[in-house]
């Protein structure tokens, strides 16, 4: 992990964020930071608040209180479109692609925010629109090449096996050229070979593009292998934060995973 990679300053800082749904406190006073060019894993047992955390990061949920500081600007609330404009892209736990559209078109949709020429020009495919379209296609092709999905370029994604759909989804997130990439269980439901492939792509994205990555994952082997740092949530609170080897030994983490007898008193 340390082969020449230089982890930079804080890219995003979360301060005392709390989210509750009615009486259920999903997150309570969670603070952590994501540093430039690192791979951060957010782990925790079921219902620990991992996905809620990710939803806060890209603006789907508004925190009840607490702030986020991204690129030296502090927000108390950020709309999803703002998050996208600022360079936060994500994938979803359940694949969320346009099933009837081809791989190529799905990845193209990831470029929407970068498309500046006006609709009319695009419709008649003339003038600057032609040039812009060509540039976008080039960017999309680079991603297709990177993710080694050339052979499914023109296949509707609904026909693809699950592992490949996940890869296409990653491709769409990459198309936005994000500064911060949020991956919600990128390896869920995959077989061993697909998992290994996905691990390699995540590492390569991080290494080749210098993209900062925050991911949620259940497979501890994967987490310990690829992440630079691990944040552990349990019942909506952060219980540990640090290097994988340190977190692995942490007694609070072991308790959270293996379970301890809660005093019923």
């Amino acid at each position: 992990m340390t082969n020449g990679k230089s982890i930079g300053d804080t890219l995003l800082r979360v301060d005392d964020v709390s989210v509750s749904f009615g009486a259920v406190a999903a997150l309570t006073d969670v603070s952590f930071e994501i540093r430039e060019r690192e791979i951060l894993a957010i782990i925790g047992p079921n219902g620990a608040g991992k996905t809620t955390m990710l939803n806060v990061l890209n603006g789907v949920y508004q925190p009840d209180h607490g702030t986020m500081t991204f690129n030296d600007r502090t927000y108390t609330r950020m709309r999803p479109s703002e998050a996208a404009e600022h360079g936060i892209a994500r994938t979803f736990q359940n694949v969320a692609l346009f099933r009837g559209m081809t791989t190529l078109d799905n990845i193209f949709t990831g470029r929407t925010l970068k498309m500046k020429s006006n609709l009319f020009m695009q419709a008649i495919y003339w003038g600057p629109a032609q040039k812009v379209e060509r540039e976008h296609r080039q960017a999309v092709e680079r991603i297709i090449d990177f993710l080694e999905i050339e052979e499914i370029r023109k296949v509707p994604v609904g026909r693809l096996p699950y592992g490949l759909q996940k890869r296409v989804e990653l491709g769409r997130a990459l198309a936005a050229e994000p500064k911060l990439l949020l991956l919600d269980e990128p390896m869920a439901g995959m077989n061993l070979e697909e998992k290994e492939d996905m691990c390699r792509f995540i590492l390569d994205v991080n290494e080749e593009f210098g993209t900062t990555i925050a991911l949620i994952e259940h497979d501890m082997g994967v987490v310990m292998d690829i992440s630079d740092r691990v944040v552990v949530l349990d019942y909506g609170r952060k219980i540990a934060d640090g290097h994988p080897d340190v977190v692995r030994q942490d007694s609070a983490v072991i308790d959270a995973y293996l379970g301890v007898a809660h005093d019923a008193a």
């Binding site: 082969n3 020449g4 990679k5 990177f146 390569d204 290494e207 080749e208």
Partner: peptide, 8 residues
């Protein structure tokens, strides 16, 4: 060169 950036 993909993936070989950090080979020393």
């Amino acid at each position: 060169p993909r993936g070989l950036r950090h080979y020393r």
